[in-house]
Design a protein around this nucleic acid. Structure first.
Lengths: 130, 130
DNA sequence: TCATGTAGATGCATACTGCACCTATTGGCA
DNA sequence: TGCCAATAGGTGCAGTATGCATCTACATGA
């Protein structure tokens, strides 16, 4: 009962958000491949489908990854212009952690597969209900 | 089996966690298909690859979905044994919202695809290293 | 009448995230 | 020279989500 006719039926809050902590594995992978600094990594993330990332999230995540020993950073003061950059590279722990993340992401992948298996089936099936 | 790499930084936090709010679309889809109650839905989630879900999260999410008008519930007092159950069904808003979620999940799917495209490439590359 | 299984729900501490805001360096240009 | 924009990195805060523990309540069988 109680068909809650709240006027905000058009809520689309998380639908535009990436699952939170995915930033971590995508950053790790990006660092593994490009060994770049935060500002650039932030832009490279778009390759993976991230839209505009919040700089705060990216820098905070990177510092956290370094505190955890998964990446290490050096200052690059030879940049052509602009302030010095903190250039990141993966540590061995980071490589291992990335592997762990990869297998977790495989899990999410199969969850999505099963979701769309059911969703697609249902979409074709619907309206034939008794 | 979450081979807990114990070496130095023994953090293995999110690798075992599903992206948070995915509970929502998977619950919506489950309700659409089975029109069941929380306790059972909680068990059905394992079909999609969710491990043991926290009951608190499931019930809280369901009540929230109802507050938002995406599902509606009726009490089923005819259960063979045990207390009454709150049986959920999708509202039209819920159907729409599920569609929105589905397209978001498609996005995550393609993010995972691009992740593994890069990851696989890199893995093959690194193994070829002498 | 008590323990157990079923069913639903809440409170709290912590964690994550988005947003706003801040510092600093370099170079262009009026 | 002084100012602004672009580049680069970072912090604080508030809102939300989550895991865990805990609680109520019903039904049944011993």
């Amino acid at each position: 009962m109680s068909t809650n006719n709240s006027s905000d039926s058009g809520r689309r809050p998380e639908a535009s958000t990436q699952p939170r902590n995915w930033l971590q594995p995508f950053l790790l992978l990006s660092i593994q491949q490009w060994q770049s600094h935060g500002y650039e990594l932030m832009q490279r993330l778009s390759v993976f489908g991230f839209e505009a990332m919040d700089p705060g999230s990216v820098y905070r995540t990177l510092r956290q990854l370094e505190r955890d020993g998964l990446v290490s950073s050096d200052w690059d003061t030879n940049s052509s212009h602009g302030p010095a950059r903190r250039v990141y590279s993966l540590t061995e722990s980071g490589e291992t952690y990335l592997q762990t993340w990869a297998s977790a992401l495989r899990g999410y992948q199969s969850m999505l597969d099963s979701f769309f298996k059911s969703y697609a089936t249902d979409a074709g099936d619907r309206r034939g209900e008794t």
